[in-house]
Amino acid sequence: MRIVCPFCGERELGEFTYLGDAKPVRPVAGAPEDEVFDYVYLRDNIAGVMEENWYHGGGCRAWLKVTRNTLTHEISLVEPAAGAGARHVVK
């Protein structure tokens, strides 16, 4: 598999580390335990198109959101995480 890192270009799988489903959003401080439990443990495992977190540890150390078809391994979109890269983040 090959992933086109937005910062480094096309690189092979071995440079990346897979984390999993990129959909769940970390609950805000003070969220009830059930909500946090869902965030920590409940993950979709879709046979099809899925957004996933990947880490380019063998390259620029950016976290990437990769849209991948888990059946064909076709990657349709790679986006940097909101806080990746050098661009200034507006508070």
């Binding site: 580390t17 984390l19 150390r61 909101a82 806080g83 990746a84 983040v89 508070k91």
Partner: peptide
């Protein structure tokens, strides 16, 4: 290595609003 990866995840994905 793993802590670096974890902290980058926190910084880039969980808390991108932090400078």
């Amino acid at each position: 290595g793993l802590v670096m990866q974890h902290l980058e995840f926190c910084r880039q994905v969980l808390f991108p609003e932090l400078d």
